[in-house]
Structures are given as structure tokens and as C-alpha cells.
């Protein structure tokens, strides 16, 4: 793709904005990554498979989800521009994927080799603060999600969701959002109707 280098360059520029990245480390990042275009409906990671990649979204929309015993899907995360997505549970526990990751619209991502990205911390310790920054941001986002789930009403959670992911409703089906918020599709429709009345 013609724009591939650009987006990766932009990401590296971002990284350089936060840490001092040596030329060697920069080259290593280029070596372990690849910009890719995935079409809507593509499955980047499938439950039960080994997890070899992590993805940085440069455009588009992806989601990670699990499938419960009855066969129904539950959305864990949506990833839009500038978000990372993969199955971190599997990577950390060195297990096969318990999540699937799919594209909800045509998306461009930078695909990193997960093992090599991890090795980068040992090879180039200067990268560590950036990794920690991503991780902290991820933890904050997860904690917020848990707290919201515990203390906010469904309508409030929906409002926050729309704020966090503007325009996402154009790429998602109702059940993606309902299963992310932990409510039924009927409840989601009701919330939208109530909101429209205001």
C-alpha cells in the first residue's frame, strides 16, 4: 500500500515524541511490523489459535469478542484509530486465543510480531517507558469500563460509549454494542428512543 510507510512513520514519530528511540530500535520496529489492509468481515484472530500478532489500528474499526457456551458473542473491546488490539490474556498466559478479533469495516493496521515486540524490551530498554504508557492507558480504560459497568445505568454507559467512540454506530451492528454494554438489544433500542426524545 502506498501509505504504509507513512502510517508506521507516524506511529514511530509518536513514540519518539515520548521517548528517545535509538536508530537501531527504530529499525527493529520496522523489521517486526507490517502495515496491512483488512476488509470488513476479516477475522484477524480466531479463538483457539495461537496469538502471534498485536495490531495498532491506523484506520477503521475492529472488535475483540468471546463466544460463550451457548454460542452467543460478547464484545470485549472496540478498536478505532490509535488503539491497540489483540488477545492479551492469551499472550500473557502463553495460551491459545480465548478471543476473536474481526474487522467491522475496511481497516488498516500495523501488525506487530507479538513475541518480537516483547523481546524489544530486553534489546532496547529505552522502549520500556512507551510500552508502560500503552499498558497504563489500557489498564485505565479497563478499570473505567469495569467501574462504569458497576455504577452507571445502561443509558449512562451508552452515552459514555458514544462519546468514546464517535461515529462507531455506522460500522457496528446493534448486538455488537449491546453485548459490549452488557444489555439486551431491546434495552439498547429503548435507550436510543429515550435519547431521541430529549
Amino acid at each position: 500500500m502506498a501509505t504504509s510507510a507513512l502510517s508506521l512513520e507516524e506511529l514511530i514519530k509518536k513514540i519518539k515524541g515520548q521517548i528517545d528511540l535509538s536508530p537501531d530500535a527504530e529499525e527493529y520496529l520496522y523489521l517486526i511490523s507490517k502495515e496491512r489492509l483488512f476488509h470488513k468481515g476479516s477475522v484477524l484472530l480466531r479463538e483457539g489459535q495461537p496469538v502471534k500478532k498485536v495490531y495498532f489500528v491506523t484506520d477503521g474499526c475492529l472488535r475483540s469478542y468471546c463466544i460463550d457456551k451457548t454460542g452467543k458473542e460478547h464484545t470485549l473491546q472496540f478498536a478505532i484509530k490509535n488503539w491497540w488490539i489483540s488477545d492479551y490474556i492469551a499472550i500473557h498466559n502463553k495460551e491459545t486465543a480465548t478471543l476473536s478479533v474481526e474487522c467491522l469495516k475496511d481497516s488498516t493496521v500495523i501488525e506487530f510480531n507479538a513475541a518480537k515486540l516483547n523481546e524489544m524490551l530486553a534489546l532496547f530498554p529505552e522502549y520500556e517507558p512507551f510500552q508502560r504508557f500503552i499498558l497504563e492507558r489500557h489498564v485505565v480504560s479497563l478499570h473505567k469500563r469495569i467501574l462504569n459497568q458497576l455504577q452507571l445505568t445502561a443509558a449512562e454507559r451508552y452515552d459514555l460509549f458514544i462519546e468514546q467512540y464517535p461515529n462507531i454506530e455506522q460500522s457496528t451492528r446493534n448486538y455488537h454494542i449491546a453485548s459490549y454494554l452488557g444489555i439486551t438489544q431491546e434495552s439498547l433500542s429503548r435507550i436510543r428512543v429515550e435519547k431521541a426524545k430529549k
Binding site: T70, G71, K72, E73, Y175, H176, A178, S179
Partner: peptide, 11 residues
Amino acid sequence: KKPGNVSFEEA
């Protein structure tokens, strides 16, 4: 593919 929002029994 089965619909994602229904169970295997429903599908």
C-alpha cells in the same frame, strides 16, 4: 456463519 447474537440452539 451463524448469527452472533443467538445461541447454537436458536441458530
